[in-house]
Design a protein around this nucleic acid. Structure first.
Length: 288
DNA sequence: TTAGTCAAGGCGAATG
DNA sequence: CATTCGCCTTGACTAA
């Protein structure tokens, strides 16, 4: 096997320790001490799960591909070879284990590393590249699952917080309405009293009315320039706005709108919650 | 029989 | 222009 010996500059520092030809010629580490390497030369090892029973049925196995590979080690399979091996074969456990370990070292496959791996595993470089490509796709899928899980947990936390705020909001809204009602009745009573007492002093009525308006201005929760006693930092106009937007939000999405500035995101979460699960896999499904 | 997994094919985009 | 990549799909295979 004419490989190895030139790859140390291309690979991670421990890569060469983990690489070995099937025969271990240049890196005679004991394979039992090196979990990344095939413990058996892949030429002789077929996957115990299912490949071995099929060797009798199918003429072309990986060892057959490898025999072809010997002729064009650095190239993709020739037409002759690809036609001969029309059946797809699974990689054996040792090949997969080695590829996995190398994937952990780096999920991008440099050309030199690809050739090294292909030679070490008795595969075509194209096969190694495809394995890495599919492996990246699987990793991405797992990552999406994890991201979804994190988002879901965040959503649930925000949702419960939002529920609490909604309840508090309702309570405060009722208090405001009660206060408004009280203010209105007090104003009506005050008007009646002033009308009666001012009937003999008509020249001062405008002044008194001004006083009344000043009084109502300082105490009415409808005055946009004054704050509510309970919430010195919130002006009534702002509170109305909050309440109105709250009602609008309830129409669109009963739980989420407040606290999440991005309406589209909240709508997404809404639909996630209220419709069937967004993702095809179940909530409790493991990622590993 | 069917759903799931995996290796591989095909295609378009990006890159040097 | 060759190569590589991501994405989608196909076909072989397996387990329930």
């Amino acid at each position: 096997m004419a490989c190895n010996g030139m790859a140390s500059s291309f690979f991670p520092p421990n890569f060469m320790l983990q690489m070995q030809t099937p025969h271990g010629e240049e890196h005679p580490l004991p394979t039992s001490l090196n979990p990344i390497l095939p413990t058996t030369p892949c030429t002789n090892l077929q996957d115990l799960r299912g490949v071995a029973p099929m060797l009798g049925k199918i003429s072309m196995s990986f060892s057959g591909i490898e025999a072809c590979e010997e002729m064009n080690a650095d190239d993709d399979l020739s037409d002759e070879c690809s036609q001969a091996g029309e059946k797809k074969r699974r990689l054996n456990t040792e090949q997969v284990r080695t590829l996995e370990k190398n994937f952990e070292l780096g999920n991008k496959l440099e050309p030199e590393r690809k050739i090294q791996l292909a030679r070490a595993l008795g595969l075509r470089p194209r096969q190694v590249a495809i394995w890495f490509q599919n492996r990246r796709a699987r990793w991405k899928t797992k990552q999406l699952e994890k991201d979804y899980d994190v988002l879901k947990r965040q959503f649930e936390a925000i949702k419960s917080e939002n529920d609490a705020l909604q309840a508090q909001n309702k309570k405060l809204q009722a208090e405001i309405l009660a206060l408004k009602g009280r203010e209105t009745s007090e104003l009506i009573n005050l008007n009646k009293e002033t009308e009666g007492s001012c009937s003999n002093r008509s020249e001062n009525s405008s002044e008194i009315n001004l006083d009344i308006s000043r009084t109502s201005a300082t105490e009415s929760p409808l005055n946009p320039h004054q704050s509510i006693p309970f919430f010195p930092s919130i002006r009534p106009a702002e509170m109305d706005q909050i309440l109105q937007s709250s009602s609008r939000a309830e129409l669109q999405c009963p739980k989420i709108e407040q606290g999440i500035p991005d309406g589209s995101f909240s709508n997404l979460l809404c639909s996630m919650e209220e419709q069937s699960p967004f993702w095809p896999w179940s909530d409790h499904q493991g990622f590993h």
